[in-house]
Nucleic acid binder design. Structure first.
Length: 428
RNA sequence: GGAUGGGUGGCCGAGUCUGGUUGAAGGCGGUGGUCUCGAAAACCACUGUGGAGUAACCCUCCACCGGAGGUUCGAAUCCUCUCCCAUCCGCCA
């Protein structure tokens, strides 16, 4: 959420941000309502002042046992007038709030202006796509022939866009979660959080999933609970409506969670494999930092996520997202894209964003720079560190052998077990 | 699910029965000062947030005692609804 005063004083910047991000909200109506609100406030506050003054007089008179009938009658009218204008003010404010929630965050100045993925800028890359002496198989083919991924079974139990992992597949998923959590806690200084997977509406609003993206979320019928689309939601809201001491910053959390996404509007895309699921696992990094540090902290966050892929030996590239790909709440975003042999291209495996004070304002997360000084909003950042399902897919495809087996990288041995070769079992 | 007790400023904690200078006693913490070679202690002063007016972080006014309504000239205080917390009982992984 943007600051009301910021919008009032910089309408052209808001306009520009909406244009570049491809977002829409009624800025003109908003500014008109703002004027109306202020004129109403001037009126009603003068009346309230009168009411307060006279009410005090009435109290005084009553205490002395004198008659206050005349003032009482007079104030009855004033009270009615106040009630009317207050109602009007609230109506205007509700409308303003509704629009304010729909203004996107302002992109950083170094974010390239662009429309779609073709305008993203590659920042750097790591590793080389492996060369195969055979035609590499897609991960779902490998997974099925190895007996470690069973999509038909998931379809039978639940439906499309769900996966069932079996045997070594299930163990690999679990191993990756632990590998990433250990890396970020032991090497990168994050504190591990295991959050609730269901949150209420205020949390969803706090991080920006609501009200605008309601159709992307799963809501539990008959309750006010939503299945989290990412651990970002519970973990960022951990400090909702709090004032953090300045010396506590930066705060760095890492959390594993299952993630649930309706994937509305993604019909027909990535229908096969692990790439796009209604439920997937993810290890998420979340930071709360001082405003002056957030640009640097984003770079560090990206580096922490990259470390995962480097250790796993997966080729990837770092992309700086253009304005059109930034998303609603982010001011700047890098995507990590991992090489997928069967797709013959790079696919997103991590998304690292700086939200500046956009989420913090919505969620009321502040800090006190020094003891005794005024509280102001923190900056929040988060990024996948990284998506587990897509990592499994990438490992299967990149480490596949001519005979259809998969040889996992050494670094996973402590988590997966010493036998890193996944072979097809003859059983059925 | 049933019963009871609670939610007040950065924190603790009065006030609610008996509505009226109560933005809210007192304490802690914080800031500034006196004292001191310096520090501690003691003492003094200051110390919430948001909004409107304004060139303005001076000032004036308005709002805020979990949240939303209501009664009233006037609500932290009375009424209704709701959320959360604690304890006990029941149920349960």
């Amino acid at each position: 959420m943007l600051d009301l005063k910021f919008v009032r004083e910089n309408p052209q910047l808001v306009e520009e941000a909406m244009r570049n991000k491809g977002e829409e909200a009624d800025l003109e109506e908003f500014l008109r309502l703002d004027e109306k609100r202020r004129s109403l406030l001037a009126k009603v506050e003068a009346l309230k002042n009168k009411r307060n003054t006279v009410s005090r007089q009435i109290g005084e008179l009553k205490r002395k046992g004198q008659d206050a009938q005349e003032l009482l009658a007079q104030m009855k009218e004033v009270a009615e007038e106040i009630r009317l204008i207050d109602g009007a003010v609230r109506e205007v404010e509700d409308k303003m709030q509704a629009i304010l929630y729909y203004f996107p965050n302002i992109p950083d100045e170094d974010v390239p202006v662009g429309k779609d993925e073709n305008d993203n800028v590659q920042v750097r890359s790591f590793g080389r796509p492996p060369e195969f002496s055979f035609t590499p198989k897609a991960h779902w083919e490998l997974g099925e022939s190895l007996g470690i991924l069973d999509f038909p079974a998931a379809g039978k139990i639940t439906g499309t866009r769900f996966a069932l992992y079996r045997g070594a597949g299930a163990r690999l998923e679990r191993a990756l979660i632990n590998f990433m959590l250990d890396l970020h806690t032991k090497e990168h200084g994050y504190t591990e959080i295991f959050p609730p997977f269901l949150v209420h509406r205020h949390s969803m609003i706090g991080t920006g999933q609501l009200p605008k993206f309601a159709e992307d979320a799963f809501k539990v019928e008959g309750t006010d609970y939503y299945l989290i689309p990412t651990a970002e939601v519970p973990v960022t809201n951990l400090h909702r409506e709090e004032i953090l001491p300045g010396e506590a910053l930066p705060i760095k959390y890492v959390a594993y969670s299952a993630c649930f996404r309706a994937e509305a509007g993604a019909h027909g895309r990535d229908t096969r494999g692990l790439i796009r699921q209604h439920q997937f696992n993810k290890v998420e990094l979340v930071k709360f930092v001082k405003p002056e540090d957030s640009s640097r902290e984003l770079e560090l966050l990206v580096a922490d996520a990259e470390k995962v892929l480097q250790l796993l030996g997966l080729p990837y590239r770092v992309m700086l997202m253009c304005t059109g790909e930034l998303g609603f709440a982010a001011a700047k975003k890098y995507d990590l894209e991992v090489w997928m042999p069967a797709y013959n291209t790079y696919r997103e495996i991590s998304s690292c964003s700086n939200f500046r004070d956009f989420q913090a304002r919505r969620a009321g997360i502040r800090y006190r720079p020094d003891r005794g000084s005024k509280a102001s909003y923190v900056h929040t950042l988060n990024g996948s560190g990284v998506a587990i399902g897509r990592t499994v897919a990438a490992l299967l495809e990149n480490y596949q052998q001519p005979d259809g087996s998969v040889l996992l990288p050494e670094v996973l041995a402590p988590y997966f077990g010493d036998d890193l070769l996944i072979k097809a079992l003859s059983k059925r």
